[in-house]
Design a protein around this nucleic acid. Structure first.
Length: 820
RNA sequence: GCCGCGGUGGCGGAAUUGGCAGACGCGCUGGACUUAGAAUCCAGUCUCGCAAGAGGUGGGAGUUCGACUCUCCCCCGCGGCACCA
């Protein structure tokens, strides 16, 4: 028989008509398994580079089903967002229509690949019955003070004309359009994710089945650092400056302070200065430079002296206060103590402006270097490591670790400073000045001020507007009818908020909605969500390691705290697949290196594409697409299918019982190894190669002569093992073998351990660690017996040449090493 | 700069509690079948060498009977973060 696309169509129709993959949420006859792939942004039709995600997910879903699970495998659309809007502006088509058109097309494609979704659970974030609940989520956060509005320096993309979250700024550029991002002071909506920083960090330890890499990236992003905030009194003013440091052990070396120009104390410090103008000019100059220089390599440190002094509370000495361009405003207090002897940046600055450098930490001396020499001459060198304290008064001689504790204790006693933990994570900026998103459910009342809407008044429908062109103000602001409303509190005149929400808010909770997709009263039915979640297996690209995955963890924790769900991590197991590249670049339309799946499916069938994508290489690694290699998968499937022809025309001739045993062993070792490969870390590539070996063995066995019954069993096993990867062909063979219904209601083949044990086989004979020969032996033989047999071989005899062996190492079933 | 991952044939890649390096597939070479092609089948394919043999997993050292695998140093590539005090 041949594999044709008729087989694809036949079984796709069968699955649809029989609701094979439909899941009853209330059905718990079988244990549940929630398999989820990151839902796509429907921006265009899919190419094979997108395929990996869905094909891996589908293989997992089908495999788990054959292990007796009730598998939920849903699909939906992350349908709000900028590209739809940009297309709308370009082609003068409503973003909704463009989005729906893409959804239709991608749905067709996924179906043609035979992906086993339960389409009854389909959701799209741009529909009112979804975004109503995104707005509901906003209100829950607002109620708890976790959604708030404030003016702050924020990231602004001049090309997209909107603000961006920190997480959406990649190396100073807009994640979407790669334009330079600048800082602006704007009043914006934030979610207070920083309240969860510690838990988001701690609970990473709970995620045993997440890739280390992703956890490390989140850890870096949260960026916890533990230290002390020290009060530095300002001379001549009834003021003090707070400085955060993680290296309080270096306090005796703090020889100046440096402030960001935004620091609130700056104005006071300079107000009576004769050269106030000069300072202000300097500030406005570095402000200007900041936008363009912030991320460039040749950033030059600059500063200006305020002519004021602070007191180092430990030494009692006067130290100058500077304003410097290398001090961050958004981290710590915006002011730091500078220890040029033990910090490269401070050192660079100190040298430029001839500020004092005082060494207070003695690092370990390099071996062989005399003590004297290291003192004066290495003055240049900055030592940033830990070590023993010197020039540090009562604390001399302590190690950095101990000194940190002792000095912090002392400071807390004397009220000089206090222990403090800082996070790099900032609050999540969620408002956007764009059209295609969920409106923020807030109104501004003349009398009551900022007022949240009532839940019963949701959804706030996205109005139809004429123009989508970004102007820096949301297009919703143009719609008078939309803006004008009444205050839910006092009934008086009020105006609606016109910003929309970041699409990452939409996707931060969608995995809950799949459980109750059409529900009009609730975002989700608690009982069902508690039964089905957390997600057992989540699959997606590593590009979401921080953004989506951290936001989802945050929202899940929040909902758990509100008693709305009974789990606080959304995804038990995470798998991040690598990209598919071609001609040295990520497959993308703009690079012109996309491979269209429709063409491949038409010519070779869906199973060929699926098999090839899984066979390409380890799925977590980047894979290189080669058109010719695809043919290998095609050939293999045809070859496997010819086994069925062989079975139909089977002539039982002389039976070779030895060969039967070999095939039996191969069948069972293949089941064992394929199962191992899939249970471990989704090693589809090696699993498939083992099935290929089984097929090769089956052909060999048929030549040698075996019983039809055994051959039939081999054929059955081959297609059972292949079924998660190549479902159409497997269904076809399954029905040709006389089975009713779908192969996915059959169970995964079981290993008979009897056939895994080998009592006889070939081992290598090594002399002094080098392979010198091979011998077939009975594994029950003792080391001595094996040695006797081995040394009887001519070749071995010659090499040993009568020398008595010093040592013999025998590893059962593998090697014997004779050391002479 | 810091953190992490990786480096194996012409190519994608196998092999990890240290035990026959190169499974499986692509490509290539030769042969069979065929009027011919496609398809299929058989054999071969790490390097040097006619062969016996020798060398070989980025480079160098080490541990070991034995190292792709473990230890130390170095080189190269990729990813994340990046003046976070």
């Amino acid at each position: 028989m041949e594999y044709t696309k008729k087989i694809d169509k036949k079984w796709q129709k069968f699955w649809q008509e029989n609701n094979t993959f439909k899941v009853e949420i209330k059905d718990f006859k079988k244990p549940k398994y929630y398999c989820l792939v990151m839902f796509p942004y429907p921006s265009s039709e899919l190419h094979v580079g997108h395929g990996r995600n869905y094909i891996i997910g589908d293989a997992v879903a089908r495999y788990k089903r054959m292990h007796g699970f009730n598998v939920l495998n849903p699909m939906g659309w992350d349908a709000f967002g900028l590209p739809a809007e940009n297309q709308a502006i370009k082609h003068n088509i409503h973003p909704r229509n463009w989005t729906l058109k893409n959804i239709k097309r991608i749905t067709e494609q996924l179906k043609s690949w035979g992906i086993s979704y339960d389409w009854d659970k389909e959701i799209a974030t741009c529909f009112p019955n979804y975004y109503q609940w995104t707005q509901w989520l906003f209100l829950q956060l607002y109620k708890k003070g976790l959604a708030y509005r404030r003016e702050a320096p924020v990231n602004w993309c001049e090309s997209c004309k909107t603000v961006l979250a920190n997480e959406q700024v990649i190396e100073g550029k807009c994640e979407r359009c790669s334009n330079e991002v600048i800082q602006r002071n704007l009043k914006q909506w934030f979610f207070k994710i920083t309240d969860y920083a510690q838990r988001l960090l701690d609970d990473l330890d709970k995620l045993k089945e997440w890739p280390q890499r992703v956890k490390r990236m989140q850890k870096n992003w949260i960026g916890k650092s533990v230290g002390v905030t020290i009060k530095f009194p300002v001379e001549g003013l009834d003021e003090h400056l707070d400085c955060f440091t993680t290296r309080v052990d270096t306090i005796f070396g703090a020889s100046f302070l440096a402030l960001n120009y935004n620091h609130p104390a700056v104005i006071k410090l300079i107000e009576d200065l004769p050269n106030k103008e000069e300072v202000l000019n300097f500030v406005s100059q570095i402000k200007k430079e900041e936008a363009s220089l912030a991320y460039s390599q040749d950033f030059e440190k600059k500063g200006i002296f305020t002519r004021k002094f602070a007191i180092n509370p430990m030494t009692g000495k006067k130290i100058p206060i500077w304003i410097a361009n290398y001090i961050l405003s958004g981290y710590g207090t915006g002011a730091i103590m500078c220890v040029p002897a033990h910090d490269k940046r401070d050192c660079e600055f100190a040298k430029k402006y001839q500020l004092p450098i005082r060494k207070v930490i003695q690092g370990p001396r390099p071996k062989g270097v005399p003590t004297e020499a290291s003192g004066e001459e290495n003055e240049e060198e900055v030592y940033e490591g830990e070590g023993g304290l010197i020039n540090s008064g009562d604390f001399n001689g302590l190690g950095s670790e101990a000194a940190k504790e002792k000095i912090a204790d002392f400071m807390e006693q004397e009220n000089i400073g206090s222990r403090k933990t800082n996070f790099r994570l900032k609050d999540w900026l969620v408002s956007r000045q764009r059209y295609w998103g969920a409106p923020i459910p807030i109104v501004y009342c003349k009398d009551c001020g900022e007022v949240p809407l009532d839940e019963k008044d949701l959804p706030v429908l996205l109005p139809e507007v004429e123009k989508f062109l970004p102007t820096g103000k949301s297009p919703l602001a143009e719609d008078k009818k939309f803006i004008q409303t009444n205050c839910p509190r006092c009934g008086g005149e009020a105006k609606r908020e016109t910003d929309t929400m970041d699409t990452f808010v939409d996707s931060s909770w969608y995995y809950l909605r799949y459980i109750s997709p059409g529900n009009k009263q609730l975002p989700f039915v608690r009982e069902d969500v508690d039964n089905w979640l957390p997600v057992d297996q989540y699959i997606g690209g590593v590009e979401h390691a921080i953004l989506h995955l951290m936001y989802s963890r945050f929202i899940t924790k929040f909902l758990a705290d509100q008693g709305k769900i009974n789990f606080d991590e959304p995804f038990i197991k995470l798998f991040t697949q690598g990209m598919i590249v071609k001609d040295g670049a990520k497959m993308s339309k703009s690079k012109g290196n996309v491979v269209a799946p429709d063409y491949i499916i038409d010519k070779y069938g869906a199973d060929t594409m699926r098999l090839y994508i899984l066979f390409m290489g380890p799925p977590q690694k980047e894979a290189i697409w080669q058109d010719e290699a695809l043919q290998g998968s095609w050939r293999f499937l045809q070859r496997a299918l010819r086994l069925v022809d062989n079975l139909n025309n089977f002539k039982e001739e002389e039976i070779d019982s030895k060969q039967e045993k070999i095939l039996m062993q191969k069948i069972h070792s293949t089941i064992y190894e394929v199962t191992q490969d899939l249970e471990g870390n989704f090693q589809f590539n090696t699993a498939i190669s083992r099935i290929m070996e089984l097929v090769n063995q089956a052909y060999k066995s048929i030549q040698a002569g075996i019983k039809k019954e055994l051959f039939a069993q081999a054929v059955d096993i081959v297609f059972l093992l292949l079924s998660p990867f190549t479902p159409h062909i497997s269904e076809e063979v399954n029905s040709l073998l006389g089975n009713q219904g779908t192969i996915f209601d059959r169970s995964w083949p079981k290993v008979n351990p009897k056939f895994l044990k080998k009592e006889k086989g070939e081992i290598a004979i090594l002399v002094n660690g080098k392979v010198r020969g091979k011998i077939v032996i009975d594994f029950s033989l003792s080391k001595e017996e094996v040695f006797q047999k081995a040394q009887r071989l001519d070749k071995i005899k010659k090499i040993i040449a009568g020398k008595p062996p010093k040592k013999i190492i025998y590893i059962k079933g593998k090697i014997i090493n004779i050391v002479v």
